[in-house]
Design a protein around this nucleic acid. Sequence first.
DNA 1: TCGCAATTCGGTCGAACGTCCGATTAATGT
DNA 2: ACATTAATCGGACGTTCGACCGAATTGCGA
Lengths: 197, 197
Amino acid sequence: MRGEGTLLTETNGQTQSEKILLAAYMCISTRGYATVSMRDIADEAGVVLSQLNYYFKNKEGLFKEVVGIMISKYLKEIEESLKQKNSPQKKIEGLINYFKNMLQLNPELFKLLYDFTGLAIWSPVFSGLLSELFKDLSGIIEKYIFNDLQIKDLKGYSAKTLSRLILGSMFGTGIQVLLDQDEELSEALNAMQIIFE
Amino acid sequence: MRGEGTLLTETNGQTQSEKILLAAYMCISTRGYATVSMRDIADEAGVVLSQLNYYFKNKEGLFKEVVGIMISKYLKEIEESLKQKNSPQKKIEGLINYFKNMLQLNPELFKLLYDFTGLAIWSPVFSGLLSELFKDLSGIIEKYIFNDLQIKDLKGYSAKTLSRLILGSMFGTGIQVLLDQDEELSEALNAMQIIFE
DNA sequence: TCGCAATTCGGTCGAACGTCCGATTAATGT
DNA sequence: ACATTAATCGGACGTTCGACCGAATTGCGA
C-alpha cells in the first residue's frame, strides 16, 4: 500500500529513470565523479539501488547518460549566447559573459565538464564523447563568429584554429577562476577579446 | 638473507621513501589518481603496503607529496623556457614550444596537472596547493614576459590579467590537443602569440 | 657487545564498493 | 479472467579499499 499514484507512470512529472538520471547529475556535479557511489545516487533519487542497474545496466552506462545531458546543455547554451549580436566583437563578448555568469551562478556545470574531461583522459569510453564535445563547441564558435562574417583568416591563423584557442582560453581561464575566487581574475576572460583589436 | 646491501641506506641510489614517491608519481601520471590504490603503488615500488603508511601517514599525505614534486617540476621547467630569449614574442614562443614538446613527448606531466587540478575542485586540501601553483606560474610568465620589459599594460589589459590568459590558453588548448590528437590542433597553441601582434 | 630506536614485514580489520539474484507487485494484452 | 511481461524491492555476493597492528629485523650509539 502506497500513498502515491501508480508506479509505472511518472511521479512528480518524471519517470523513474529520469529521477535517477537527475540525481546522478546532481551528485556528480556537486561532489565529482570519483567520490560518487551508486548508493549515493540511489539515495538522492529516492530509489532502491538495484533500480540503477535495471535502467542503466552499470555505472559506466549511467555516467555516459549524464555526459550526454551535459553535452546537450552546453551545445544549446553556447549557441544561444552567440546567436543575437552581429559583430564578432559583440559575439565573443556575449560568449564571455555567458561563461562568466555560469562560473558565478552555476559553477557546477563547469565542474561537470572539467571532471568528465579528466575522466576522458584515462578512459577511452569517455574520451570519444568529450573529444566530440570540444570539436562541436569550437565548431559553433567558428560558425557564429567567423563564418557568418566571411572571416577566413585573422592575422595568419585560420578560423578553426582561433576557435579552438577561444574555447581553450575560456576553459583554462575558467578553471583558474574556479580555484582562486579572485574578482580580478575573471577580467582575464574579457581579455580574450584582444583577438579582434 | 637478501642479495642486496643494507636496507636502511639507499638502494639503487634512492631511499625507501623516494622509491615510494616515484612509484606514486608514475602510477598517478599514467592511470589517474582516481583509479590508483595504495597497493598498486606499493607493488610498483617493490615495497610492502604498510611502508606507505609508515612514511606518508595516509593516502592523502602521499598524494600531497606527489603534488609537491609536480609543482617544483613545473616551476623549474616553465621558468627555464622563459629565461633565454629577450623579446616578448620570442619568450612566449619559447613557452609555447616547451608546452608543445611536453604534450608530445611527456604528456604524463600535463595529465598529472589536469588530474590534480580536478581533485582540487572538490578537495580543499588540494585546492590551496593548485591555486598557488597557477598563481606562481602566471607570476613567472608576468615577470619574464612583461615586467622585464617594463610593459605594464597592453591594449588596456594589465600584465597580470594577460599572464593569466596566456596560462589559461595553454592549459585549455593543451587538454584539447590531448583529447584529440590532431596535428593541426597544436597550431592553436601558436596562435596565442597573437597578443603581441 | 648490549640495548634502544628505526625500519620492515605479513597479515587482518571493518567498511564500502558494483553487481547480481529471487521474490513480490503492478501493468498489459487477450 | 488469466497469463505474460515489466517494474520494484530487499538483500546478499565477492572483491577491493585504506588503515592499522604486533612481531621480527636492522642500524646505531653507548
